[in-house]
């Protein structure tokens, strides 16, 4: 954490293009941005973003009408495994703009707002490749990990040895939210936003998520 603070200070000084100083100023109060990227693979040092979606959240309202969505033309080939996940093929991205051209618009959209996501560190690591190339810095925005809030609400007081399940589908199920079209950047960002507003309220009202006492021994689906 201290390291990230130091990096932020350093980045602020080394920011090449001063017109991006707004990234270091706090965004409008009570606003965050839910962000999700689909990528060519899972290695931030090698893989690239092929689609990105960002949705603003103001208080309890998800501003689905104010979103940023883009398909990206990557410089590397898309891994076959990744195509299976998000369904974007070479042909779908070949007419898109490269990330370096998209990034300025995205940065203006998110401004200094905190970024929320599911495994947000991965998305930010992917974005940082291009931010570094463009501005010589890392994204300075505060980050909020929804699975972290979920963990605290559900397992924060769990006895040792409790089985922990932080899968996206499981979080949605616990919050009674619809699972929808996963691995489409916009849908993922939207579902993450729904998880966030719901969990934020749980934290505010100090509501905990119940853990099942015993694991159900069988699944009655289809019976």
């Amino acid at each position: 954490m201290a390291l990230r603070w130091l990096m932020r200070k350093l980045d602020h000084v080394t920011l090449r293009d001063k017109s991006y100083r707004f990234l270091f100023e706090p965004g409008p109060p009570d606003e965050v941005v839910s962000i999700d990227c689909e990528t060519t693979g899972l290695d931030p040092s090698r893989d690239e973003i092929i689609s990105v979606a960002a949705i603003k959240i103001r208080g309890d309202r998800i501003l689905a009408s104010e979103t940023f969505q883009a398909v990206v033309r990557p410089r590397v080939a898309i891994a076959a495994e990744a195509i299976k996940v998000h369904g974007l093929r070479e042909i779908d991205v070949c007419n898109a703009r490269p990330m370096i051209e998209i990034m300025p618009d995205l940065l203006r959209f998110i401004g200094g707002r905190p970024l929320i996501g599911y495994y947000i560190d991965f998305d930010i690591a992917m974005l940082n490749n291009d931010v570094a190339e463009l501005l010589g810095i890392h994204l300075p925005n505060p980050r909020i990990e929804v699975s972290g809030i979920y963990y605290e609400r559900k397992y924060g007081d769990a006895p040792p040895g409790t089985q922990i399940d932080l899968t996206f589908a499981n979080i949605l199920r616990d919050l009674n939210l619809p699972l929808f079209n996963q691995h489409d950047a916009f849908s993922d960002a939207l579902m993450t936003a729904m998880i966030y507003v719901n969990l934020k309220d749980y934290v505010a009202r100090d509501i905990r998520i119940a853990r099942p006492r015993i694991k159900p021994s069988s699944d009655f689906h289809g019976m």
Binding site: R61, I62, A64, S65, L190, A193, M194, V197, R205
Partner: peptide, 10 residues
């Protein structure tokens, strides 16, 4: 769809 927001209520 493009004009719609999502609101959370406690």
């Amino acid at each position: 769809r493009g004009a719609m927001d999502i609101a959370y209520f406690r």
